[in-house]
Simulated scan of single mutants.
Amino acid sequence: MNSKLRILLLAISVLFLMNCAVKQVKQSPNYEKSLSNFKRLTISISPDSKINPTEATLAKSIAEQELAHHKEFIVYPDPLNKNVNCGVQIGKSQGVLKLKLEESLNGSTPGFLVWLLPAVLGPSSNGMRLTISASMQKCDTKEILWEGKAASSYPLGGDEEATLRTSYENKLGKSIGPKVLPYYDLLKSLLDQIESPVLNEAEQDEKIEVEAGG
């Protein structure tokens, strides 16, 4: 392989890595071992987040759905956000996944550059950029078991995932509609990196009861 081709391939590889929405994932050496009994969580939004209350509700709801339905965690609802930094035990929760979010709207980056490098550049004049930092803390030991960070830019006003968008518009109002897909896409990309516990039969019953509001 000649040197010019090697340099070109290296540049493409670096650009590809830069353009990944998930920027960082770090897992404690104890994480996998902890999953044998660490299965109950709440979701909290960091007070340091730079988003509005409606967007915070959207992010919390999406994260709860992802960890409860696409992973096997038992997610106890914490609508008042009491369990930030393991401040209050909610139900039988053993830990908390804390999300710190920041969004910026209507930037000056040309749209075609954002389209090429959404995880690096943006937002465009009709788009938004979203950054999410997440940490999972085990409350009895205060140990941080997992951390991750993701960022990307998105256009606003698309019709993708119309059913999901309509569902959240019905819950939170029409104004949230354009932001549903960006929040869903970036949260899913980040939370997909979390390894799931395995529930036994009694824990599966507990999960059903919690999700039914029991």
Rank of each mutant, 00 (worst) to 15 (best):
K4Q: 14
K4M: 14
L10S: 15
L10T: 15
I12H: 08
I12N: 05
S13T: 14
S13I: 13
S13C: 13
V14C: 13
M18V: 11
C20Q: 15
A21G: 10
V22Q: 01
K23I: 05
Q24D: 10
Q24I: 07
V25F: 04
V25M: 08
K26D: 12
K26S: 13
N30A: 12
Y31L: 06
Y31H: 07
Y31P: 01
L35R: 05
F38H: 06
R40Q: 10
T42I: 03
I45C: 04
S46L: 07
S46H: 10
I51G: 04
A56K: 04
A59N: 10
Q65L: 12
E66Y: 12
E66W: 08
L67M: 11
A68S: 15
A68R: 08
H69Y: 12
H69C: 07
H70D: 10
K71C: 07
E72H: 14
V75H: 00
V75L: 07
P79K: 03
N83W: 01
C86V: 03
C86P: 01
V88Q: 04
V88P: 00
V88E: 03
Q89D: 06
I90Y: 02
I90T: 05
I90N: 01
K92V: 03
S93Y: 00
S93P: 00
G95I: 01
K98T: 12
L99Y: 02
K100A: 04
E102A: 14
S104N: 13
S104I: 14
N106E: 11
G107W: 05
S108Q: 13
S108N: 13
V114P: 02
A119C: 04
L121R: 07
L121H: 07
G122N: 01
N126C: 08
M128P: 01
T131W: 07
A134R: 00
M136E: 04
D140N: 14
K142D: 09
K142G: 05
L145P: 00
E147P: 03
G148T: 03
Y154L: 03
P155R: 05
P155W: 00
L156Q: 07
G158E: 11
D159N: 15
E160G: 10
R165W: 00
Y168V: 03
E169A: 15
E169Q: 15
L172K: 05
G173W: 06
G177L: 05
G177K: 08
P178I: 09
K179Q: 11
V180S: 00
L181A: 12
L181Y: 15
Y183K: 04
Y184M: 08
K188T: 14
K188R: 15
K188Y: 11
I194Q: 00
I194W: 01
V198T: 15
L199V: 07
L199S: 05
L199P: 02
N200Q: 09
Q204K: 13
D205A: 13
E206A: 03
E206W: 02
K207Y: 01
E209R: 13
V210P: 01
V210D: 02
E211G: 06
E211R: 09
E211S: 09
E211F: 02
G213T: 04
G213S: 07
G213Q: 04
G213H: 05
